[in-house]
Amino acid sequence: MHMAAQHPTAALLLCEVVMEILSWVPAKPLTRLKLVCKSWNSIISHPHFVKLHLHRSPKNSILLFTRTKRLTLGEEEKQGLVLSSVESFIRNPSSSLDAQENRHSLHLEDWVSGSCNGLVCVAHILCHHNNDICDIWFRLLNPLTGFVSENSPCLRVNVHNSFGFGYDESSDSYKVVTVIRDSSGTVTAQVYSFGGSSWKTINSLPAFLFFAGDINGHFIGGTLNWLFLRNPHGAHYDWSDVTLDMLMIVSFDLKSDTHKQILLPTGIDEIPREVPTLEVWGNSLYLLHDYNNTHFIAWQMKEFGDENSWTQLLKISFQHLGVERLFLPKFIFENGNIFMLRGRLPFEKVFYDRRDNSVTRVNILGHNRYFDAFDYVESLVQPC
């Protein structure tokens, strides 16, 4: 018996239903579901579906950038990326760092400069001996799908530079920005759009900027943000001589290639003892610093770009945290609810949960290990 051909409208409706269902499936199983049939592969690979799925993906993963140092002759230095859930990492950091599943090896000359929409920007840095000049190439990785982009054109810079990586929605492009300060104090930005053939030079940045805290720019709302120190003397500085009016947040707009200054919270009335840090979690910018060498303070900019929305999220004593001095957290978990600090012991981590005011101390075994972490979301994104 001959079966009648499916009506085009019905076929289209079925395709939309399948797309809707698949868009809620986690990214990792989707990479296997592409093998089910040609139509599913076509749906999952379509750019519209990739963006829809990214929008609906849960933001509950972190990317761990790990480095194991050589301790004795014959041992091999290793470097790589590890994907982990926030819950797993907090429950057992050592196990998460050592996990072989979802581990991706990197070259020893690689440095992770940021993560955005499931893509990781990696800088491959080769420095020349006897001078301060380095050659840098950038590439994009998707640790979940195995996607690796072509390298950017080589960029020759001095050692006084900082990186940032983000997404420009207006042009649907991923960009890396390198901020460079030369020996004369001149500051320029080099911007590269992945898939392009050259770097673009931006000369409008203020002179005599020094990088305070993390050298990686923090991506939020189509901008990259750094905490800079403006030194009016144009030379090296001593933190003990820094004043509040010398600190500034510089926000670089990836759409317009322009920058603006974001004012610090008005509630900061004295320079912290240690260098403050910027962090991003979700859609909020955070400023973290010590107060009088006795308290840890976190500010949250609830509406990015609105300086009036700076809110003091917490002020907690070192005594309650069980730390003698503040080693500022490198990252924040759970929508700004959990902060990680360094404890009294060299390899001890302190997790503070502001929801119940609890403190958890964890000794991360393996004193030969360095790690950093990035807010991460698993995705199927693979730029052209």
Rank of each mutant, 00 (worst) to 15 (best):
M1Q: 13
Q6P: 00
A10N: 15
I21E: 06
I21G: 09
W24C: 11
W24N: 13
W24P: 02
V25P: 04
I43V: 14
H46R: 12
H46M: 01
L52A: 10
L54K: 00
R56A: 07
K59C: 03
L64S: 09
F89Q: 02
R91W: 10
D110Y: 12
W111M: 13
V112E: 04
C121Y: 08
V122P: 13
N130M: 15
N131D: 14
D132M: 00
L141E: 01
P153T: 11
P153V: 06
G164L: 01
S173W: 08
K175W: 03
G185M: 02
S197V: 11
S198H: 15
K200A: 05
F211A: 04
A212L: 10
H218D: 06
I220A: 07
T223D: 00
F228M: 14
N231E: 10
P232L: 10
W239M: 04
T243R: 14
V250K: 01
F252T: 00
K255L: 01
T258D: 13
L263R: 06
G267L: 08
I268T: 07
T277H: 02
L278P: 04
E279S: 11
V280T: 05
S284A: 10
F296D: 06
W299A: 00
F304Y: 15
D306Q: 08
L313P: 02
L321F: 06
L326W: 05
N335L: 12
N337M: 13
F339T: 08
L345R: 14
F347Y: 14
F347E: 11
D356V: 04
G366V: 08
F371Y: 12
D372Y: 07
Y376T: 08
P383S: 01
